[in-house]
Design a binder for these strands. Structure first.
Lengths: 337, 337
DNA sequence: ATTCGGTATCGAAGCGCTTCGACAACCTAT
DNA sequence: ATAGGTTGTCGAAGCGCTTCGATACCGAAT
């Protein structure tokens, strides 16, 4: 293994000079710099991460804490994770992957050991048990998701309240009076996951304002659960002409069931999905949808965290404005006959 | 931040004693151990990761390299990643997430910097460009997937050849003579991804042995691509009575299309999927399937890597035997009329 | 009583890097 | 010519930990 000292010797300078070439923290003459850089290349030198971390007390690692929940839509998580990892690299950071398994203690462990310089938490609950620990250690952090109390925290999320409102608006504008919402799995609400509740909040208040009826039902993923849920909804509100789905793994089952029952989309039933664009465009009907901007969320999270680590950047809540893309699954409400 | 020295002082012992209590590398009297452990707890001591890595030249970190490909079925990747992270923790390792973005150089960077003690590579191609680098650095590693040349490498994978064979066997046993295979996206084959080719190999050789006709068509995910592919298949081989799908995002579209065309599953058409169990059980028909054991793969990979890091463990190729679960999407071939 | 093998502990060296203060060497303004 | 300010480089002191002798003590065997 090549060390700084060997590079220094090879280039005929002192170790500190090499270090300064690497970090750029002091001015170095062009000739020296070139000699050093040449030696680095020739010897194939890579700074030792541990030594660096010890000496500088910065690890250049960001911890990303992903929960293990199986009732969450996984691809979005994955996309965020990849975006975080990729974006972090462009800022010179690597990403450490923590699963929920270890529980809140992971926060303490990582903060205490100096393993990571900061952390990003995903799938934050309204009253997340990791937050007290996070506030206790003054570990720089960014949440993806919104807890109930955001004081002293930096959070990045899609504006789910506005998302809900947007969906209702779109349907109401087309004359739909009876709207059903097929939500996330019941477990998601029981856990008080912020995004689910905020969406619901947006849906409800906007529909109240616009004077349309709204029926919300949680629903597990998969075909069977969807069949039961849909039957209940149509039984309770036969006049339903618009459906908003927030559970991605319920999208295709829903479309299949509607087709099977002879309800045409969008002629008999309009469908709006809250899901990644890929799902919306690959479904059996091109779905009008509000996209979940996973990449953007990951990128924002990293950038805010890096800003904090560099001393810039203050606590703030960043809500990404939702965008509704009209595709072919929504249309005017059928005239009441 | 609490240091080893502070703990030592608090417990009235030397720093090295505390270190030995922590590592267990030398015998320590019960009384001393307890005193030290108490101090550790009272002071809330966490060993500093960087210092540890520097002194011991082991980081207790495993790098996990996930490619960025969007044409791959992401949930499986995610599941493996989570399994790796979780399993690694039980062995005292953390996981560093590397994306394909950085390219093969990531191998050099991580190996050179001592950031990780070993690495796990996912989505290995037959002739993967990371392998030469991997062999050059003698970084301990485990591949998930099988390259063309496995000498000197440890690999973990589902036995896709056997998987293909198993699918054909199951259908042939039920009297199906004309079988269609809906494969992964064309890009996957162009890239010479091991698992896709090996599956195909198993499918072909077994169908030759059993004397059944086999038609293979790659297919992108989504409804539209599936519609085109299915139409072509049925056009070319109208007698097709069994379908094997290897692209998870094609599963639900396929079922929707069959339903739409009035082909009952399994009466008119048997369908076997190669996919995670969750997909098979949540689809609109309970699919007979060969599961992709993501968890098991992740676990195996970690365990082999840890074995290598501890000096046990030699190079070997671990193929996990496929298991076919019969559900309700397959039945006897319709009698030829 | 003396020696021997264990067991339990300590001190010190050093892992590879960053960073601070010191110091030449040089340039400018007086 | 001299003081003052830059600029570029070096040496040395750690960062917090592991690990290798060395040492001191104990009971068992001679």
């Amino acid at each position: 293994m090549v060390t700084l000292a060997e590079v220094a010797q090879h280039a005929g300078v002192s170790a500190s000079t090499v270090s300064y070439v690497l970090s750029g923290k002091r001015s170095i003459s062009a000739t020296t710099r070139q000699r050093v850089e040449r030696s680095i290349r020739e010897l194939g030198y890579h700074p030792n991460a541990g030594a660096r971390a010890l000496a500088s007390s910065r690890s250049n690692i960001i911890a990303l804490m992903i929960p293990l929940r199986t009732d969450m839509y996984v691809p979005v998580m994955m996309e965020i994770a990849i975006a975080v990892a990729t974006c972090a690299r462009t800022h010179g950071y690597d990403v450490l992957l923590l699963t929920g398994e270890e529980g809140p203690d992971a926060v303490r462990r990582v903060a205490g050991s100096g393993l990571a310089d900061g952390m990003i938490l995903m799938d934050v609950e309204l009253d997340d048990e990791r937050l007290p620990l996070l506030r206790a250690t003054d570990q720089p952090s960014v949440l993806i998701g919104l807890p109930a109390d955001t004081t002293g925290l930096t959070c990045v999320d899609l504006d789910f309240r506005a998302t809900g409102a947007l969906c209702v608006e779109h349907l109401a504008k087309q004359g739909h009076q009876d709207i059903a919402v097929i939500g996330e799995a019941p477990a998601v609400y029981e856990r008080h996951t912020g995004f689910a509740e905020r969406t619901l909040d947006g849906l409800r208040s906007r529909s109240r304002e616009l004077g349309v009826r709204l029926l919300h039902r949680p629903c597990d993923g998969g075909y069977d659960a969807m069949a039961v849920t849909l039957a209940r909804i149509l039984d309770e509100r036969p006049g339903t002409s618009g459906i908003i789905v927030q559970n991605e793994s319920a999208v295709e089952p829903l479309l299949a069931l509607l087709r099977q029952q002879g309800r045409a989309v969008p002629e008999d039933m309009s469908v709006v999905a809250i899901c990644p664009d890929q799902v919306a465009t690959q479904a059996s009907v091109r779905l009008t949808s509000v996209a979940i901007p996973a990449q953007e969320m990951g990128r924002h999270a990293v950038e805010h965290l890096v800003a904090k680590l560099e001393g810039r950047g203050r606590d703030e809540v960043v809500l990404i404005a939702p965008e509704l893309t009209v595709r072919t699954s929504t249309g005017p409400a059928p005239s009441r006959s």
